[in-house]
């Protein structure tokens, strides 16, 4: 009766394997989807202290006068917004060479960032840290609709329609926008970090930018109406679910249905 015993074991093994696969995928997802906490209050910066910080942490690549070296560009004229964005999102200082600087928890305090920004801003005129009035989130339908449309036309091609991120060439990518503060979003638009183009005020006015940010934050706050969003990545994650889970569950049901009762 060895054959029968083996046959009886198999369906259970399938189910166990399936469960294991699910747990592993779930765990991997949980690990792969880190969250960042970022503060966005602006503090007045101290240029002198900023200079000291710069020399200690940034000068090795950007040069003692921030005029750039072979390893890194000049920071003269990039403005406070660029520094605030790059440092507060942890992109700078760059940890190691990669196709692009990844987002990571920052090593600096808010005051450090403000001082650094103030120092770099003092080197030459550039985009300033956005005013608070443009960082308030709007909630009226009209602004949200406007923001959504502008986001689709100007941003969704790289960042995906709900800001889930997307690929660029040769290992570069447009990062996911979840957890990015309104201030950082605004700064990214005016400074165009890394591969991202600049959206100056003639292209997207400050109010336009505010609408875009309001829309993104609205999406982030709302739960997914249909249930688990599967990362909002579109048909591919749905395909994965249909095959890795849907078909497996249905076949599991068929195995149970045809297995001989004990």
């Amino acid at each position: 009766m060895k054959g029968l015993a083996a046959r009886r074991r198999r369906p259970l093994a399938t189910v166990v394997l399936l469960l294991m696969a699910l747990v592993v995928t779930g765990a991997a997802y949980a690990v792969a989807a880190p969250t960042f906490a970022n503060a966005s209050t602006t503090a007045a910066g101290d240029v002198q202290r900023g200079r000291d910080l710069f020399v200690a942490s940034c000068a090795s690549c950007h040069g003692a006068q921030a005029t750039g070296t072979r390893a890194a560009p000049s920071l003269v004229g990039v403005g406070a917004a660029a520094v605030d964005f790059q440092v507060s999102t942890g992109r700078m200082p760059l940890a190691n060479t990669a196709p692009q600087a990844p987002r990571k928890p920052t090593e600096f305090t808010q005051q450090d960032v403000a001082d650094l920004s103030a120092y770099v801003a003092s080197l030459g005129p550039g985009p300033a840290i956005p005013e608070d009035q443009y960082l308030n989130l709007k909630t009226d339908d009209e602004s949200l609709a406007k923001g959504a449309e502008l986001f689709r036309v100007n941003c969704a091609m790289c960042h995906n329609v709900v800001g889930a991120g997307g690929a660029l060439t040769r290992g570069k990518y447009a990062p996911p926008l979840e957890g990015v503060t309104p201030k950082q979003m605004y700064e990214a638009m005016v400074t165009g970090p890394q591969s991202m183009p600049v959206f100056n005020d003639a292209n997207l006015s400050p109010t336009d930018k505010q609408d875009v940010i309001s829309y993104l934050k609205y999406l982030e706050e709302q739960p997914s109406p249909g249930g688990f969003s599967l990362g909002s990545l579109g048909p591919v994650s749905e395909a994965l679910f249909a095959w890795a889970f849907g078909i497996v569950v249905l076949i599991g049901a068929a195995v149970w249905l045809t297995a001989k009762s004990s």
């Binding site: 890394q194 591969s195 991202m196």
Partner: peptide
């Protein structure tokens, strides 16, 4: 739409 522009490259 070929809309993904990498401003550095």
């Amino acid at each position: 739409p070929v809309a993904l522009y990498e401003q550095q490259t």
